[in-house]
Each structure stands twice: as structure tokens, then as C-alpha cells.
């Protein structure tokens, strides 16, 4: 067996040893797979189970994620709107693991990734096989029509690369998610992530280095590289929010609706920060 296949099967074993019921949950996942075990977007469930092994370990033993409000997640297509932080997108991964392991029926979260991700070797392939999709409106529309769960960070890079002094302050929101929610009549569930800010507090952003490496930011963190510290994660899923209106409404109408989501999420974040005992334990 080639090395890559041995690695995949070892990782799959690791996931199953940590979460024995994954096998059964997997068989109920209604992803439309073809004779080669992939769905039209390139998601491969076997690969996904292998790829999430280290993330499941981080979830249980490193970030010790506590989840609240999963029972509020409605059935069917869904837009999850979360705050983005921590330099590396472990926040998205932890939300994905929580839904994969704990929702009924199980869900594979599709995040809308930045457009430069498909240009990266390895990352592009791993993301695609694990169900992550380039964040074009067309892709999002198609996935929602198929009843999928989509995770959007409306702050994008502005959120994940921000400095520690701006922690837990939501940055400017894009409007795209609201247009899609209105167009496809999809409920929005805000998800507050508390803890990711402390995994990699960035004190400076070295812009010239960021430009040199063509990265969105080059943060200087306590671990030098933005490797995560063992912060304790709290995920809080809010009440579903439903909006009515036309997707081609005036920007002001759209903005008002986006602000409502942002305010709700900011409130949940503040409550979460207040409620926790300590950032790291």
C-alpha cells in the first residue's frame, strides 16, 4: 500500500478510536457520492474522517471545546455566521468537528474558503476532499439548494488577522451572506467562538513580510509562528434568525439586516467572554 494510503487508514483508525460512533454516523450522511466515493464538489467522507483525526484530538484534549446551544440548530439548509480569529482557522475546524460529532442528524459543514486557498499545494486538495469550497456566491447558492450547512466568516481576513488589542471586537462584515440568505430563504444561526483569540495573540503585523510571502498578514505571536496555544474554546450557537426581503434590495436595507446579525453575535461573544473563568483553563 502506498504511504499516503497507509497514512489515511492510520488516521481514520485514530478518529474511530477517539469517537467510535463516527462509523455509524458516517453511514447516515446523505452526501451524494458517486462510484468513486466523492460528491460533485470533491468531498470524500473516508478522507474526511481521516483528516479530522488531529482536529478531533485538538477538540477534545487541547482546546477542550465546550459547546452550548446545538439543540437550537434547525434542520435543513443553514448558514452559520461566526466571528473569525486566531491567525489560523482552527475556529472553523472546531465548529465543523462539533457539528460532525454532536448534531442529529450528523452534518458536514462546508466553509466558504478564501479564493487564494485553491492556489496552495496540498492545502487545496485536503480542503476540497474534506468538503471545503471556494467562497463564490455561485458555489454557496448551489450548496444551499442541496440542503447543505455553510459556515461563513463575514469578517474574512480582517477578523482572523486582527491584533490582540482588537480581540472580540467584530470587524467590518461583508454583505454577501445576507444576500444569499434572502435569495435562498435560509435561516442564519450565529455562532460565537470564545477562546480562539487567545490561541495566537498577535502583537504586530509585519506588513512587508506579509507582502513578501503574499500572505494576508504576517503576525508576530508568542510562539513566533502562529501555532496555537492551548486556549479553552467555548462555542455558543444562537437562536436561528430568519429574514425576509429581496436579495437585490437597497444596500441600506441589507446593511440593517447584517447589523442585526452582527449585534446579536457581538452580544453572544461578550456574554461568553464574561462567563468564562479563564482564557486557558
Amino acid at each position: 500500500m502506498p504511504l499516503s494510503e497507509r497514512l489515511v487508514s492510520a488516521l481514520r483508525g485514530w478518529t474511530l478510536s477517539m469517537e467510535p460512533e463516527v462509523g455509524e454516523r458516517l453511514s447516515r450522511l446523505a452526501a451524494a457520492q458517486n462510484e468513486f466515493g466523492v460528491d460533485p464538489f470533491g468531498l470524500n467522507l473516508d478522507f474526511t474522517v481521516a483528516a479530522i483525526a488531529p482536529l478531533v484530538w485538538l477538540y477534545k484534549h487541547y482546546f477542550r471545546v465546550e459547546v452550548e446551544g446545538l439543540d437550537r440548530v434547525p434542520e435543513g439548509r443553514l448558514l452559520l455566521i461566526a466571528n473569525h480569529s486566531g491567525q489560523l482557522p482552527f475556529d472553523g475546524a472546531m465548529i465543523g468537528v462539533a457539528l460532525f460529532l454532536h448534531t442529529e442528524p450528523p452534518r458536514v459543514v462546508r466553509s466558504m474558503v478564501e479564493k487564494w486557498v485553491p492556489a496552495l499545494p496540498f492545502v487545496s486538495t485536503i480542503f476540497a476532499r474534506a468538503g471545503q469550497v471556494v467562497g463564490t456566491p455561485e458555489n454557496c447558492r448551489r450548496l444551499l439548494a442541496a440542503g447543505e450547512t455553510i459556515l461563513v466568516f463575514p469578517e474574512g481576513v480582517r477578523g482572523i488577522s486582527k491584533l490582540y488589542r482588537d480581540r472580540y471586537q467584530l470587524q467590518e462584515f461583508g454583505h454577501g451572506f445576507m444576500r444569499l440568505a434572502l435569495e435562498t430563504d435560509t435561516p442564519i444561526v450565529p455562532v460565537a467562538v470564545v477562546g480562539a483569540e487567545e490561541q495566537a495573540p498577535a502583537f504586530f503585523n509585519v506588513k512587508p513580510l506579509a507582502d513578501l510571502f503574499r500572505m494576508p498578514a504576517f503576525p508576530i505571536t508568542p510562539t513566533i509562528l502562529p501555532l496555537p496555544l492551548p486556549a479553552k474554546y467555548h462555542l455558543r450557537f444562537g437562536e436561528p434568525m430568519r429574514f425576509v426581503g429581496r436579495p437585490d434590495d437597497e444596500e441600506e436595507d441589507l446593511e440593517r439586516k447584517v447589523k442585526a446579525v452582527k449585534a446579536e453575535l457581538q452580544g453572544m461573544i461578550h456574554a461568553g467572554v464574561q462567563a468564562r473563568r479563564h482564557a486557558y483553563w
Partner: peptide, 9 residues
């Protein structure tokens, strides 16, 4: 292209 949607219309 890396910017392409998965299903171009």
C-alpha cells in the same frame, strides 16, 4: 483558474 466556482454556468 483557482477563482473558478465548482460548476461554471
Amino acid at each position: 483558474s483557482p477563482d473558478n466556482s465548482n460548476f461554471l454556468t
